[in-house]
Structures are given as structure tokens and as C-alpha cells.
Design a protein around this nucleic acid. Sequence first.
DNA 1: TCCCGCCCGAGATTCGAAAATATATTGACA
DNA 2: TGTCAATATATTTTCGAATCTCGGGCGGGA
Lengths: 237, 237
Amino acid sequence: MARSETRAERVYANLRGDILTGRLLPGQRLPFADLGARYSTSVGVLREALSRLVEQGLVLSEPQLGFRVTPVSEEDLRDLTSTRIDIETLCLRHAIAHGDLAWESRLVAAYHTLDRTPELASTQPPTVNEDWASAHAAFHAAVLEGCPSRRLRDIAASLRDASEIYRRWSRHLGSEDTRDIAGEHQALRDAVLARDVEKAEAALTQHISYTTQALLLSAPDNLMTAHDAEPAGTSPA
Amino acid sequence: MARSETRAERVYANLRGDILTGRLLPGQRLPFADLGARYSTSVGVLREALSRLVEQGLVLSEPQLGFRVTPVSEEDLRDLTSTRIDIETLCLRHAIAHGDLAWESRLVAAYHTLDRTPELASTQPPTVNEDWASAHAAFHAAVLEGCPSRRLRDIAASLRDASEIYRRWSRHLGSEDTRDIAGEHQALRDAVLARDVEKAEAALTQHISYTTQALLLSAPDNLMTAHDAEPAGTSPA
DNA sequence: TCCCGCCCGAGATTCGAAAATATATTGACA
DNA sequence: TGTCAATATATTTTCGAATCTCGGGCGGGA
């Protein structure tokens, strides 16, 4: 029709987006009937999309029982955080060592966009601003893009996606107030531009750690609560 | 019938094995008709299995054009090698820092199995011994299993799988003779048991590098040749 | 009353054919 | 004879129904 993007790709992208932005909650079951109605497609393409997400670790498959969004847990969050620190700082070292001027420029641009985008939308109650979320993702992606290894970049990106679930799923924390997120980003940018590996690593490590610590402090108990949420119908948009 | 392993899982495992062991060559196209005959299954489960492999980077998907085994290239091999060194040494550091006695014991066992398994089968011409290949994989897996981070272990394992394609695909090299592979493994084992991070890292790095260097030296030109191999029929079992 | 096995409904899995898209072939015209 | 358009063929993509499996409810026996 419009173009040659297969339906499977679109459904995959939609599903992925709905999981990453928290429209589908961790632990939630994903029956084919509901999903078929939600994305108006058949079982075959759903299985295909879900299989891909399983491989990414975003969805869990239990044979003969169906699929569900991967549940969150404190243990997984800790593992994910420490792995992200390992991989992202590794990527960062390579980026600082090998990144060229074009990379620096894209980084500066991404930082500027992020800096000028308000973090919270002016709704009642205040919610995460979608623009800020994507600017934030773009900034961190820009940092890591200086790394010459495609595989390493891909790994870092997938870990970052995984932790996006945690961020979104516990969006209304409040403890964010005590943090100077903008300052953290600026420190990271400056250290990178100065090609100061030590400082950059420290800044990135802190940035990642802080987010996890805030999550663990403010929501330690409901980390296991979302396992039996309502099925994925057409409504929750 | 026998059990509740879904057909999709079996086809996925078979396909994966056939790619990893080189029964399906890099670059080779994978038409549904041939695959359906080979694994005696329908298009749906094939798409599902192939999608998972795409997500792993073992298969490439071109919309409306079908699937093919991911081609090899010198550039990818270099990237893969350097990434493996980064990740596996990282994993190794964690393993040495956190691995317990049970881990040491499994490592010693795996080494012993590998040490007592002949590398080449006594056929004419000599081919890679399947038992050695799995013992080799098991040994390296055992090394990394001391790492407490499940995600990091999974990443390392997937990179190791990816490079298995290269190893298999260029199996008849001959330049292996000049290497003391057994010695390399022993050095790695000893350094790990001595909890000597420096030595262990060096041994692992060398081990990985040597393999790649041998490949690049002995087969630099046919790294781009397998792109139009014959389709995946039922015969080559 | 409690426990075991049978039956039934809900849902996942698999299939084979219809629809859509790309590639190869043919034939007409310059 | 060469090129382009139109047709025919091959292959992928999508669907909806048929098949199979799991879990729970029901009834009979201890």
C-alpha cells in the first residue's frame, strides 16, 4: 500500500514502544486475542514480533502458556545497573579515544536539545515529558556513538533500553527533586569534550547509579507487584 | 507427543545449530520452501525461528526478499574480536573476583575434559572433532560462569557464538599447527586458579587474538566469497 | 469429607491456502 | 538488434481455521 514496510515490522515496533514507555506493564500477560485486537493483526505476525522481543529480553515466553512482559525485580535492576556501568564506561573510553569532531558536534547538539527541553510536562499531575525522554535517550546515544565498535554500541543501546522499562515503570517517584540531573549531564558532556577519561567515567557511573538508587529507595516494595496486571486490551491508551 | 517442546523451539535450535556448525554457510539464502522441506514444518514456525536468529545477529532479514545467513567480513571479524576481548576480559575480572570453589571445580573439570579430547577427528582428511568443539565451548563457558552478572555472561556467550561461525566456516586452515592451543588453555586455567587477574587477562586476550590472526592471515580473500552459495536444500545433512 | 481421574473450555500452536510483492520471461516496437 | 513494457512465475507475507495442550470443574469412589 503506502510502502513496503511489512506489517510484522510495524507490530514489532509498536509492541516494543508500548513496553518501553510503560503502556504495557512489566509482568503483564499478553494473550493473542487482546493483542490481535489492539494492533489489528493476526496471530502469525504477533508471534513473530513477540519472538523478537523475547530474544531481546523484553518479553518472556512460557511454552503453551503464552507471552508476558518481562517482570521487574530488584535483583535484575542491580544486575542491569552494574552491567550498564561496565559496558557504558567501556564504550565511553573507546569513544573518547576514537571519537572525531563530527561526533563532538553531534554530542554538543544533543546536549543542547536536552538542556532546553523541560523534563516534566505541564499537566496535572506532572508527567514525564515525552520530548524530554527522547532527548535524554538521544543524548546518551550520542555519547556512546563515538565508540567505533558497532557491536559494543548495540550492546550498550540494548542495555539502555532494558533500563528504560524501570525508569518508566516507576515514573512518579518524587525523589528526583534532590538530584541535579541537568548538572550531571553537563558534567558528562564537559568531561567528554575535555577528553578526560577519568572524570567522564566517574560522571557516567554516578549518573547511572543515582537513578537506580533513587528507584531502590523510593520503590523497594512494589518491585514485585505488577505481575498480575490486567491483560493487554485495546483501552489503556 | 513425546513432550511439550514446541515445534518452533526445535526448528529454532536446529537452524541455529546448522548455522553455528557451518552446515548453512554465511551469506546463503534461506527460502521458505527449502527450509520447510529440510525441517518439515510450516512457514509460520520458520518465520518465528528466523526472527529470533535475526535478533541475535545470526541471520539477516531483507523485507520482501527473505532471509539469509549473516555474511562474514573482515571488518566484522575485527570488530567482533575486539569486542570479545573487551567483554570477555571484563567477565573474567568479575569471575576471578567473585568466583567460588564450586566454580573453580567446574572449571578444572571442564579443562580436564578438553585436555583429554583430541582436537581432530581421525578421518581423511582430518576434520574438527565435534566433541572437541563442544568441550572447547564448555571450557570457555566455565571460565566465564564465575561472573556473577547473568547479563554480562549472556552477552559474552552470544559474542562467542557469533565468532563460532568464523571458526567453523574456515575450519581447514592448517596454520593451527604452529599454535599451542592446549598450552594457551592451560595458561588461562592456571592464571585463573591463581586468581592472577593480569596473567589471566593476558592469556585470554592472546587466545582470542591468535585465532583471529590465524583466520585473517590464511583466508583474507575468501572472506567475501560465500554470498551466493546454493540454497538450503534437504541434502547437505 | 477428601482424593483421584475424567471431561470441558480457554488459549497457544500449527498448518495450508489466499494475497501481495519481487523476479524472470516474453513479445512488440523503434 | 536493443530496449522497454506487459505478462508469467516464483517467493514472501498474511490470514483464519484446525489442532493440540493446559488448567479447572465435576462426579465417583474411598
